[in-house]
Amino acid sequence: PGGSDLKSLAKHVYNAYLKNLNMTKKKARSILTGRTSTNPPFVVHDMDTLWQAENGLVWNQLIHGAPPTKEIGVHVFYRCQCTTVETVRELTEFAKSIPGFVGLYLNDQVTLLKYGVHEAIFCMLPSLMNKDGLLVANGKGFVTREFLRSLRRPFNEIMEPKFEFAVKFNALELDDSDLALFVAAIILCGDRPGLMNVRQVEEIQDNILQALNLHLQAHHPDSLYLFPKLLQKMADLRQLVTENAQLVQKIKKTESETSLHPLLQEIYKDMY
């Protein structure tokens, strides 16, 4: 495709991202840096402040489907699941807007989402993070990294690797228009296990990667090797997802009273 086609693809994908993904990096950064007129986020840094946040309706939704728990680590695990499920829903709508996606076999659409959503989530999480914590509840809360580290094992191991990734990923200083194409390229990945029509997926991804490369050259002219650095991040994300899946398996085994949302059960089953 020519340059103008790639530019219009980049614009289309960016618009789909803005339309379907609720918390943009732009919005998150304005909250994290205090450059917004809305109230600053409520800071959760210990059990008391977590309880206050739950009772003060920082979160819009209650935790549905999960058994009630008094254990704080389990509670945080359920909150992570709620956010993940909602983001999977948003990412599915985003994927459907990527040109060519709905023309794939339904089987392949399922496979791409099964393997792609966690990588996509973990590359969007850094938008909500700084080295000290992360925004939650649509920007109304901020949970400190120290608090998450203080949970008992294995729940203290859930978020720390994501913070380590985020600090490095945020150094690339991507904005939402870059992230939109990067997330699309992650979802349209031709080497997911069990794809029926690999070539069809690769053709779509190839277009997206060309659009991303062109977009980065225009948008970050002084950032050398940004495109190959992002390709490397795709491999890092795969590793992060593998480790996350192993941790979820461990929690399932050792924490028998802890339940996993049915959508996440589907995604993790026979994944890696």
Binding site: L106, Q109, V110, K114, G194, L263, E266, K269, D270
Partner: peptide
Amino acid sequence: LKEKHKILHRLLQNSSCSDL
């Protein structure tokens, strides 16, 4: 794959999914 991923299927075919 369809049997094992009923919710993902439903999400792909409808934008709303009541059991989420």
